[in-house]
């Protein structure tokens, strides 16, 4: 009985995770400016990742395995927040990047 409940919860969490990742991708298309797209990527995708991590926790082989999953999640959260801030800072400091630079790098 408990197993079935846990399984149902896991499936629900996985579906929620998929939905949020899909909405995050939708955000890349619907938002027209870079900064708004960062909003979509950081907040929505992190929520999606959170649901996936919660769904995977009951599958962890040991306590250490579960803690490792949570640590990876925390690292991804910190990485996402830092990246968001850095890109936002770059766009804020220099809103129109030089086009010549772009073609030279490609």
């Amino acid at each position: 009985m408990i197993e079935t409940t846990v399984f149902a919860m896991q499936v629900l969490l996985l579906v929620m995770g998929c939905l949020f990742f899909a909405v995050g991708t939708l955000g890349l298309f619907r938002f027209s400016d870079t900064l708004s797209r960062i909003h979509a990527l950081t907040k929505v995708d992190n929520l999606g990742l959170g649901f996936i991590v919660l769904a995977l926790l009951p599958l962890a082989p040991s306590l250490a395995g579960g803690l490792k999953t949570v640590l990876i999640w925390a690292a991804a959260l910190a990485a996402s927040a830092t990246s968001a801030h850095l890109i936002a800072r770059a766009v804020h400091v220099r809103p129109e990047p030089p086009e010549a630079k772009e073609s030279a790098d490609d």
Partner: peptide, 15 residues
Amino acid sequence: LANTLSLMPGTLSAL
């Protein structure tokens, strides 16, 4: 504060 605000509703710290 600056880092958590990026994950809070509606805000993104730019500078």
